[in-house]
Amino acid sequence: MKNQYISRYFLLLTCCLIIIKSTVSAQNNILVFQSDFGLKDAAVSAMKGVAMGVSPDLKLYDVTHEIPAYNIWEASYRLVQTAPYWPAGTVFVSVVDPGVGTSRKSVVLLTKSGHYFVTPDNGTLTLVAEQLGIQEVREIDEVNNRRKNSNESYTFHGRDVYAFTGARLASKAMTFDKVGPKLPEKVVTIPYQKAAFGNGKVKGGIPILDIQYGNVWTNIDKEVFNKLGFKVGDDIKVSIQNNQKNVYEGVVKYVNTFGDVKEGEDVGYFNSLLFFSLGINMGSFSEKYKVYSGGEWSIELSK
């Protein structure tokens, strides 16, 4: 009798786990677009039109369409900056695709967080794969999963393949297993300097700029930063490199917010994502010191 109850318990537990997993990964009718197309022409509208043609019940949103042209790294960052705030089951279509029409793979990544990413496998998935985890990767079958009568189009896969596939997934017109063949659980990645402490210094990368204001955002979180023992009000020595060539050497004051110093003064602070950042009160750190972002940029902090 005891063994019977134990068997029933484990059967119930297994069923619950299956239900939880299916709930987490189920599509939710939300489709979110990102591209480097800009909004000067009809490219974004065309992608959304294709999606609505699949299902007028879809809810369409945007991350941004102002990724700098061909900047795969920034596309990768904007996805990981945004996706965690969207519910599980959301489908993202990201099209920054300088290799459009070539042999690079078109894929859909399902992360362990339950989000779907439809994109060329060209480095765009670097950060979401790392931070949200890889549940499964499938290559898009471009014979079956593309807009009707688009076989002779080679330069707008965002419209013909990715928007179409993303819409079918988000609307549940297609299950994930119908995307195409399953691939190994890995994606193309872009190398970058990860945050680390050693020899009395903290090293990190500069993944992105706070574009509107010219602030420089690093990937150094508080846990790593605090190993230096800094307190608010201390001065921090900062060294910034591009491809290992020094671009900036200076000292900034560690503050909570910009108004803690005089206008025009350099500051070090933690941004809204709680990563160490550099700025100028009422000014642009990036513009003043010619510091930008990407996998080739790195930073060192020390006392």
Score class of each variant (00 low, 15 high):
A42M: 07
L274Q: 15
E136V: 01
E142M: 11
K59F: 12
G294I: 05
Y213I: 14
N219Q: 12
G295C: 12
T119G: 00
V261M: 12
A83V: 10
F156I: 10
N243C: 03
G205K: 10
D57E: 15
L132D: 01
T64V: 07
A195C: 06
I30V: 11
P56Y: 08
N144T: 06
E223V: 08
N28F: 13
V261R: 11
S286Y: 03
Y61Q: 13
F270Y: 09
Y116P: 01
T82H: 13
L125D: 04
P56C: 06
G229C: 05
Y248V: 03
Q81K: 14
S103E: 11
G295D: 03
G294S: 13
V232S: 05
A163N: 04
T218E: 09
P181M: 09
I134N: 07
Q4R: 15
S103H: 08
P98M: 11
A173M: 08
D160F: 08
M47Y: 13
N226W: 03
V161G: 02
L79F: 08
K148G: 00
T14H: 11
I236E: 01
I20M: 14
K2V: 03
V118H: 08
E66Q: 14
S298R: 09
G250V: 09
F156S: 05
F10C: 03
K203D: 02
K231D: 00
G49Y: 07
Q241Y: 15
S7D: 15
P184N: 08
P191L: 11
G53I: 04
Y269S: 02
A69N: 10
A83H: 05
N199W: 03
L132P: 01
I220R: 07
Y116D: 00
L209K: 07
I211Y: 14
M282P: 00
L110G: 01
L17M: 15
D235G: 01
E142Y: 03
V128F: 05
L79Q: 08
P87Y: 10
N215A: 08
Y61R: 12
Y292P: 02
R159P: 07
A167G: 04
K186P: 02
S284R: 09
V161F: 10
P181G: 07
L228F: 04
K290V: 00
S103I: 11
K105I: 08
T126E: 04
Q4S: 13
S25F: 14
N242C: 05
A167L: 10
P207W: 04
F92R: 13
A43H: 11
T124F: 00
S55L: 06
T23Q: 15
K48V: 00
N151R: 13
I20E: 13
K222V: 01
N215F: 15
K182V: 09
Q34M: 14
G295V: 05
G214E: 07
N199D: 14
V187W: 09
T155P: 04
I19M: 09
D210E: 06
T124D: 02
A42V: 05
L301A: 00
Q131Y: 12
F117E: 00
N71L: 10
Q135L: 09
S171T: 07
G229P: 13
T23E: 12
N256R: 15
P120T: 02
D221T: 03
D266Y: 06
I20Q: 15
V32D: 01
T218R: 02
N219D: 10
S113K: 14
P84M: 02
M1H: 11
V202H: 02
L183E: 13
L39I: 11
D41T: 11
P68E: 13
F117G: 00
